[in-house]
Design a protein around this nucleic acid. Structure first.
Length: 249
DNA sequence: GTTGGCCGAA
């Protein structure tokens, strides 16, 4: 037992989110199932356009599971989102920079970059990064075969600095809503459910009520297969994660 | 059609 079980990913990978989704929407939706640590909507680095997915990280993986089961294939902002457990942890910019070379980026992506002047993403990241680097590294090593330090050294500071310097000051924010797809035909469904409970703007009140029930339920279910699971739900929850990984899809 | 550009150079 010395080998620490790697903490299950508490982050959910939400894909097919609307391109104008806000992190607050997601936080509101997912926050009903448990306390949320972070919500992140990645944007294209050059376009500053939403990439169509989002991440929601819970404090507790059970809440994440709960949210996954409850919100998967739900309609949010006129789109049917699909939720999975996220793979890996949040990529650091350096990781992404490393990816930049491998990816198909590098072409003329500056077109739309012009209209999206600034990032308005969720900057709700919290400083939990110093929690335990050990597992992250360990996890990272076993997760990605190439690991880190694949680029020993290279004067890339210049290359990407030039890009940053190129940030256009003049913006045309008004006509950034020129998407013609994503017909919100099913928005009514979502609005119905959204209107039911979005009246109260107070945060963190009694909103985990629903999740508590299902958690109880789940706990009973867990009892069937495992018996040493009754108190603080924080140690080894890797069962779910593993089963998710094993099951595949 | 399937994963995170918040971090690093004075």
């Amino acid at each position: 037992m010395s080998r620490y079980l790697r903490p299950p990913n508490t982050s959910l990978f939400v894909r097919n989110v609307a391109d104008d989704i806000r992190s607050e929407d997601l936080r509101r939706e997912f926050g009903r199932y448990g306390p949320i640590v972070d919500v992140y909507v990645p944007l294209d680095f050059y376009n500053r356009r939403p990439r169509g997915f989002a991440y929601v990280q819970f404090e507790d993986v059970r809440d994440a599971e709960d949210a996954l089961h409850n919100l998967d294939r739900r309609w949010i902002c006129g789109r049917q989102i699909e939720i999975q457990f996220a793979q890996g942890d949040r990529k650091t910019p350096n990781q992404m920079k490393a990816k930049e070379g491998r990816s198909s980026y590098g072409s003329s992506r500056y077109d739309d970059y012009d209209r999206y002047n600034r990032r308005s993403r969720s900057r709700s990241y919290e400083r939990r990064r110093s929690r335990s680097r050990s597992f992250e590294q360990n996890y990272d090593r076993s997760y990605s075969p190439r690991g880190r330090a694949e680029r020993p050294r290279r004067s890339r500071s210049r290359s990407h600095h030039g890009r940053f310097n190129r940030r256009p000051r003049s913006q045309s924010r008004s006509n950034s809503r020129s998407r013609s797809k994503s017909q919100p035909r099913e928005e009514r469904k979502e609005q119905r459910r959204s209107g039911s409970r979005s009246q109260s703007r107070s945060k963190a009140d009694g909103k985990y009520k629903a999740s508590r029930e299902s958690r109880k339920e789940e706990r009973e279910r867990s009892k069937s297969r495992s018996h040493s699971e009754s108190r603080s739900r924080s140690k080894s929850r890797s069962r779910s994660w593993n089963s998710h990984k094993s099951s595949g899809h």
